[in-house]
Design a protein around this nucleic acid. Structure first.
Lengths: 292, 292
DNA sequence: TTGAAAGCGCTAACAA
DNA sequence: TTGTTAGCGCTTTCAA
C-alpha cells in the first residue's frame, strides 16, 4: 500500500471524524489502557506530588489512571482493588499497602509502603533517618527519642530500625493529633529528652503542639525533626529540620516500573536518595543545670 | 423463575468464578461507568479534599474516576479532555476551567472555576471576601489593598468584584512566588497600605515573604488575609486569617450534580457557604505618626 | 498484498 | 415467561 493511499485514507477518516473506539478495542485485545492508582489518603500532603508523577508518566505512555482512595481502611482497600481488577485495569500502583495486605493477581508496583515481595519504589528513609540522628549527635544531643508512625507500616519499621538505640513511643497514625498524643506520653515517660526524631512531618507538627502545651520551646528546650519535607513545612514555626524525599520522582519511577512490568521486563525495587534539610527546629541542647 | 433457581444459578456462577466483563458490557450499553476528573494542579493544597469528595461520591454510585492533571496548561487541558472523551467517559468534573475554555459535548460539572453556562459548584467567595473586608474595617483599617490571582480565572473576578474599592495588584498565579512579586509591587506603589486581602492562601504566604523582605511585620505593620483555609495554614507564622471553604463538601456536591445530570435531571449551579476564620495575621492598624 | 469473516462477552430485542 | 439471536466496533486470522 502506497504512502499516498495511506494519507488519503487517513484524510478521509479525519474528515468523517473517525475515532477508534477504545472499548471495542479493549474487548478484542484484552487490554484496557487503564491502570489503578490506590492511595491511603490523598489529603496527606506527601501524596499529591507522587500522584502527579505517576499520572503524567502513565498518560504519556497512553495509560489513564483510575484513582482510588482507601481512607487508610484495609477492607476498603481490598474492595477497591477488587473493583479495579474487575474493571480490567492492566496494572496497579499501590501507595496504601499495609504489611498484611493481599494484593491480587495483577501487575503491581508499591509506592512508599512495602508488602510481601512486590516491587517497591520508595525513598531511602533509612539513610535519611541516619543523617538526622548524626546531625543531632553533632549538635551535642545524647538523649534522642523517636516517635514512630503506625507499626503495621513498613515505613515505620524501616525508620525505627535506622533510628537505632533510644526511647521510642509509637504513634497510632501519621497525623498531627497522633503525634501530639505520642509526644505528650514521651515527655511524661522520658522528660530528660532533648531531641525528638518524629516518624514524619505531621507527627513532628504534633510534637510542636505537645511541646507548646507542656511549656517547652522548640528548639530551645527540645529539638524536633521530621520526614518528607512536605509542602509548607518550611513555613511553619519553627521551620522544620526534616528529610526531603523526591516525591515527584518517586511517582515517575513507580510509573516507569509498572510500564516495564507491563512490557514483560523484569523489575525490582528502587530506593531513591533522600536529603537532610536543616532548618530552625534543631539546635544545640540547652546546657543542663547540675541537679541540686 | 423461582427464587430457589435464582439462588442455584447464582451459586453456580460464583463457584465458577463468573465475573461480568465490564468492557463487553460497555461496548453493548454505551455506558462506561467512568467519569473524568480534570484538575489544574493536584499539588495545590485546596484540591485534594475536593478530589476525595468527588471520588468517594462517584465510587459509591458505581462510577470510577479517571484523574487528569492539566498543570494549568490550557492546551494540555484540551488534549486531556479530548482523550477522556475518546475513552468514553460518561461525564466530566472540571476544576481547571479557564474562562475561555471550550468544554466538549459531554455532561460536565465545573468546580471552583466558572466557564460559560455550565453548572458550577463552588464556594461563595464573594461573601467570604466581603466578610474579610468588613473584619478589616472593623479593626480600623482604611487603606486596604487586594492582590488577585490570574485574571483569566473566574475565582479572581468574583473575589475582585466583592473586594470593591481600593488599590489592586494582579498576581500571575496562585503561588507563593507570584504573591511575593505582586506584594513587593504593591508595597512600592502603595506604601501606605495597612492591610492586604490576598486572592488565596498561597498568595498570602507570598505576602508574608515580601513583607519580611521589606522589613515589615505581619500583623504589626500590615495585616494579611487569605482565602481557602488550606491544610497547615493554621500552623504558619503568623497563623493566617482566612476564608474557610467547605472543600470536601464541594467535591461531594459536584459529584452529586454530575450524577443528577447523568440521570437526566435538570441541574444548576451551587454556591456553598464560606466562613471567616480569624487568626493572628490581622490586627488593628499601627497608629500612624502624623507627618513631620 | 488485500479482503473477508469470525468472534471478544455482553445486552436488548424478538420469537416461541 | 423462556430461549434465541443479532450485533456493539474492533483486531486477527485465514483465504484468496
Amino acid at each position: 500500500m502506497s504512502d499516498a493511499t495511506v494519507a488519503r485514507v487517513r484524510a478521509a477518516a479525519d474528515a468523517l471524524g473517525y475515532r477508534p473506539d477504545p472499548t471495542a478495542r479493549s474487548l478484542r485485545t484484552r487490554r484496557s489502557g487503564v491502570a489503578g492508582v490506590v492511595v491511603p489518603d490523598l489529603t496527606n500532603p506527601v501524596l499529591p506530588p507522587i500522584v502527579r508523577g505517576i499520572e503524567e508518566t502513565l498518560w504519556s505512555a497512553g495509560i489513564a489512571c483510575l484513582l482510588a482512595d482507601t481512607d487508610n481502611d484495609e477492607e476498603r482497600e481490598a474492595a477497591l482493588i477488587e473493583e479495579l481488577r474487575s474493571r480490567r485495569c492492566e496494572g496497579l500502583i499501590v501507595a496504601s499497602a499495609v504489611r498484611t495486605a493481599q494484593i491480587p493477581d495483577l501487575p503491581t508496583v508499591l509506592v512508599t509502603r512495602e508488602a510481601g515481595s512486590l516491587p517497591l519504589v520508595a525513598a531511602d528513609d533509612a539513610s535519611g533517618i541516619r543523617a538526622v540522628v548524626a546531625h543531632l549527635r553533632e549538635l551535642g544531643h545524647t538523649r534522642i527519642a523517636h516517635i514512630t508512625g503506625p507499626l503495621n507500616l513498613s515505613t515505620t519499621t524501616r525508620r525505627l530500625a535506622a533510628f537505632g538505640e533510644g526511647p521510642v513511643v509509637h504513634g497510632e497514625a501519621f497525623t498531627i493529633a497522633a503525634g501530639e498524643r505520642a509526644c505528650a506520653q514521651l515527655l511524661r515517660e522520658h522528660p530528660e529528652t532533648t531531641a525528638i526524631v518524629a516518624g514524619n512531618d505531621m507527627i513532628a507538627l504534633g510534637c510542636y503542639a505537645a511541646l507548646a502545651a507542656a511549656g517547652l520551646r522548640c528548639p530551645d528546650d527540645v529539638s524536633v525533626t521530621g520526614h518528607n519535607d512536605m509542602p509548607l513545612i518550611d513555613r511553619v514555626q519553627p521551620p522544620l529540620t526534616t528529610v526531603a524525599i523526591p516525591q515527584y520522582e518517586i511517582g515517575v519511577a513507580a510509573a516507569n516500573t509498572l510500564l516495564a512490568r507491563l512490557r514483560g521486563e523484569p523489575v525490582g525495587s528502587m530506593l531513591l536518595p533522600t536529603r537532610l534539610v536543616i532548618r530552625a527546629s534543631t539546635s544545640r541542647p540547652r546546657p543542663r543545670r547540675s541537679p541540686g
